[in-house]
């Protein structure tokens, strides 16, 4: 079921229609031979990964293993050096032009981004807007909703994250945990098909981590949105992920169910990583 082909450097060839008609569920996300270099430094060395619709995938691994870069590519914040990424069956960073695969233009990226959302480690709320406007602005400007529709959606989403009593406040007056919950509401209100959570609790004081994880747990239980959880919270990953990916040195070293990864790690790297984590 976890159809992951370790086929590094697949290159940027035109993807053929799946010859296997038995694969009726097409993946929501598919990385194929994705690499990323910053100058001489290669942070991703060939990633192949599929995420099914609604699947919750936790990505764990040491800092500098390229986890965040992987997520940022899906949000079109970072362009792959090689390889392709598909979202909902369509290429993200490339498009066909006269039968050739070319770099996607802004129009294509804009259309593709409708399916993807992201929550950042440092929240990135808009400091000059109230909580309510942080959440209504994009639905109005980008989705073209009316003020009333946008506010209705925003208030119900802010209710879900427990902040519908803070509509008029500004981000500067919120705690870190509250800020992150607003950021989650802001991303959710766009109704993406897949959402990247990039170390969303790493910048929080320890006592505020719980409230944010609780919100994410509730979203995960609702089920229909695929989630890529880049995280250092092992217990949390174990609890809500359908599948856990362990990445190190720019490669996916091991993956499997939470039980396989946390209880029966096969590779030495993962064993060492988990051990170091537990001893902390």
């Amino acid at each position: 079921m976890n159809a992951v082909v370790i086929d590094a450097f697949a290159g940027a060839e035109v993807p053929q229609p799946d010859p296997n008609p038995a694969a009726e569920v097409k993946p929501m996300v598919r990385y194929k031979g994705v690499t990323k270099s910053f100058g001489d430094l290669q942070v991703l060395k060939g990633i192949d990964l599929e995420m099914q619709p609604g699947e919750k995938v936790a990505v764990i691994g040491p800092s500098g293993s390229g986890k965040t870069t992987m997520g940022r590519m899906l949000m079109t914040l970072e362009e792959p050096t090689e390889g392709t990424i598909e979202v909902d069956g369509e290429l993200l960073w490339h498009m066909q032009e006269k039968g050739r695969l070319v770099r996607a233009n802004e129009k294509h990226l804009h259309r593709m981004r409708c399916s993807v959302g992201m929550v950042f480690q440092h929240f990135n709320l808009f400091p000059h807007m109230s909580v309510l406007r942080n959440v209504t602005e994009a639905p109005r400007k980008v989705l073209g909703l009316s003020k009333e529709e946008a506010e209705e959606r925003a208030v119900s989403m802010l209710g879900k994250v427990g902040l519908d009593d803070k509509l008029k406040m500004y981000p500067a007056n919120l705690s870190g945990g509250q800020k992150q919950r607003v950021a989650i509401a802001r991303a959710l209100v766009m109704r993406p098909k897949v959402m990247v959570f990039d170390e969303v609790t790493s910048a929080l004081d320890p006592e505020l981590v719980g409230e944010v994880l609780e919100v994410i747990r509730e979203i995960a239980e609702e089920g229909d949105m695929a989630m890529m959880l880049i995280t250092h919270e092992m217990d949390f990953a174990k609890e809500i992920a359908d599948r856990v990916i362990f990445g190190a040195d720019g490669l996916i070293v091991e993956q499997g169910t939470p039980e396989e990864i946390f209880d029966n790690p096969r590779s030495e790297r993962l064993q060492n990583f988990l051990q170091r984590f537990r001893s902390n």
Binding site: L77, R113, V116, G117, N124, A138, V142
Partner: peptide
């Protein structure tokens, strides 16, 4: 204006013009 503001605008699918108008210039 912090880089994260640009990234948040991209993540919410603002166009370049919308990003300038409602996120970057007001800050």
């Amino acid at each position: 204006v912090p880089k994260g503001q640009w990234e948040a605008a991209t993540a919410l699918n603002y166009t370049k013009a919308q990003t300038w108008r409602s996120i970057i210039l007001p800050q």
